[in-house]
Computed example of a mutant assay.
Amino acid sequence: MSYVLHYAPDNASLIIRLALDTIGVPYSTVLVDRSKQEQRSATYRKLNPNGLIPTLETPNDILFETGAILLWLVDTHGVIGPKPGEVTRADFLKWLFFCANTVHPHMQLLFYPDKLIGNDPGLQRAVTEGAQRALMRDFAILEQAANQAFGDDAPTAIDIYVVCMLRWCAIYGPDNRDWFTLADNPNLFHICKRADAWPATEIAKRAEGLGPAPFTAPQRPKPPEGSAL
């Protein structure tokens, strides 16, 4: 069994790359070149009509939406989360969907306020500040729920999802970085420190140019191919 991951460096496809390498399933990658807006091309939209990244091709299906891909991988392979019927499945599902349906949309508002309200600078600033407040609440909830939401030594899909979103909040979006400090959240910092040492992270660092400590000391990537923005 082999998969094809359509990716761009340091995009949501990073979550799926880390998941695939944690599971240990073989896959190949196809670059979606954001500098050429390939995600909006007719060819790519045949795979993913939303024109968003990532898309995962499997032997039987084409999957998109980050949360859906993660859940499918868990149900197919286990490893990064409990399968149906396991006692921790309910907790896993609620926190996975919290990440996909609450935290991730708030993060997208932080990065792309124009998609909601157009090019008015004042309205964009209001949306950005609202997104920052929402994300602070989201991360505070995850900080308090760490024992229930995250894995132990073995990373789960939720661990992978959260550390990537924390990374992106630190290096993308508005220039003001003072609204959230990872070090003030010891449980989240601990998860990020673990993530820096995952074998899957080493693979992603080489593939996407993520820097030496991509989750505890994130910096803009220098990918060998493609563009993050």
Results as ranks from 00 to 15, higher is better:
M1I: 00
S2N: 01
S2E: 07
Y3P: 00
V4Y: 02
L5H: 03
D10M: 15
A12M: 14
S13A: 15
I15G: 05
L20S: 04
I23R: 09
G24T: 15
S28A: 15
V30L: 10
V30I: 15
D33G: 07
D33H: 11
R34Q: 11
S35G: 03
E38M: 09
E38N: 03
Q39A: 04
A42H: 05
A42W: 08
Y44I: 08
E57G: 00
P59H: 01
P59D: 01
D61K: 11
I62N: 03
E65N: 12
L71Y: 13
K83M: 11
K83V: 14
E86G: 01
V87D: 14
T88M: 11
T88E: 13
R89Y: 09
R89E: 08
F92A: 07
L93R: 05
K94N: 08
W95A: 04
F97M: 12
C99G: 10
P105E: 11
P105R: 13
L109G: 08
P113N: 05
K115F: 13
L116D: 09
L116R: 13
D120S: 11
G122I: 09
G122A: 13
R125W: 01
A126H: 13
R137W: 11
I141E: 00
A145Q: 04
N147L: 02
Q148G: 02
Q148T: 12
A149C: 03
D152C: 06
A154N: 12
P155V: 08
I160G: 00
C164Q: 01
C164N: 00
R167K: 06
W168C: 03
G173D: 05
D175Q: 14
R177Q: 09
T181V: 06
T181D: 00
T181A: 00
L182G: 01
A183P: 00
N185E: 08
L188T: 06
L188N: 05
L188A: 09
F189W: 12
R194C: 04
A200K: 04
E202S: 13
A204I: 10
K205V: 15
E208L: 15
G209A: 13
P212G: 06
P212E: 10
T216A: 03
A217V: 05
P218W: 06
P221S: 02
K222L: 07
A228F: 15
L229Y: 15
L229N: 13
L229A: 14
